[in-house]
């Protein structure tokens, strides 16, 4: 058996172009954040903000308000994560629709081909769905402590294997939702362009009419679909994470109820024993 080819490290040209688009989206977000930070230093708080500062203030305020109304006051700093998640999904969809030429991989087959939407590769939606998974379990562990492990044996200990499989269902559904949407948009847009190719047999007519008709398709399948899916993704993340939160009072109450139940059981056992004693 030849093990030399068992593990082959990908070269730069083997990297899927989706990863490059994702890195570009992240770079755009990082540059925007740095610009806002630089502007904030010379910002006079007495004047109303203008330009990019105003946009940033509105966005952060919107995300914070959404988090406040969906998750409650316990998740005060969660708006930042939700904002970056939403910006990442939206900018990725927009980049897939602009189609920057792939100038980063000279020598590969995909040189100068348009960079695709990162979510047409299953790895990208899976990675952000895994982040949501991490947040869900991190929140549960943080607020429930050792009581976190009780979720695997509910309602009985027999349900352990079922619970171990159920644990992954949000990851699967979030991944496939985003992936399927991006892929469906890509397929339909490609189909429409192919249809134009057959419909407009004269080059001049095609050049005149395609720029008028294609934006409608792009508007629905890239911009609108992206916005809806980013809303759904952020909502599901917020709801799933907020469902794991237990306030300290609730935790204390649950503990008290459990102790009461145990005491009641013990009392019943004692009374049964005392009732059974004369008979014996």
């Amino acid at each position: 058996m030849n093990l030399n080819h068992a593990i082959e490290f990908p070269t730069w040209n083997d990297i899927p172009p989706e990863f490059l688009t994702s890195v570009i989206a992240l770079l755009i977000i990082a540059i925007l954040a740095l610009v806002v930070r630089a502007r904030l230093k010379s910002y006079d708080p007495l004047k109303p903000p203008r330009g990019i500062l105003y946009a940033a203030e509105e966005l952060v305020g919107f995300a914070d308000r959404q988090v406040q109304s969906m998750m409650g006051p316990a998740f005060d700093g969660f708006g930042g994560y939700i904002l970056v998640l939403g910006l990442y999904i939206f900018i990725s969809f927009i980049l897939g629709f602009i189609g920057i030429p792939n100038v980063f991989q000279p020598g590969s087959e995909k040189f100068l081909a348009p960079l695709p939407n990162p979510f047409t590769n299953t790895a990208m939606p899976l990675s952000i769905a895994l982040l949501t998974f991490f947040w869900i379990h991190f929140t549960a562990m943080r607020y429930k402590g050792w009581g976190y492990f009780k979720r695997y044996t509910e309602p009985f200990a027999v349900f352990l294997p079922i619970n171990l499989v159920t644990m992954w269902s949000p990851v699967l559904s979030l991944t496939l939702r985003l992936f399927g949407n991006a892929l469906a948009g890509f397929c339909v847009v490609t189909l429409v362009y192919t249809g134009f190719e057959y419909a407009f047999t004269t080059v001049g007519v095609g050049l005149a009419l395609t720029p008028l008709l294609a934006p409608i398709v792009h508007l629905y399948f890239d911009v609108f679909d992206g916005l809806i899916q980013l809303t759904v993704f952020c909502m599901l993340t917020m709801m799933n994470v907020a469902a794991e939160y237990v306030s300290p009072e609730e935790l204390a109450e649950a503990k008290r109820a459990q102790e009461e139940k145990r005491a009641q059981r013990q009392r019943r056992r004692m009374s049964r024993r005392s009732a059974g004693a004369p008979r014996a």
């Binding site: 559904s173 496939l176 939702r177 992936f179 399927g180 949407n181 892929l183 469906a184 809806i228 899916q229 809303t231 759904v232």
Partner: peptide, 13 residues
């Protein structure tokens, strides 16, 4: 609507 549509998307996949 987005949640219901996701079922159609699973079917598409």
């Amino acid at each position: 609507m987005g949640l219901v549509e996701s079922i159609a998307i699973y079917i598409l996949v």
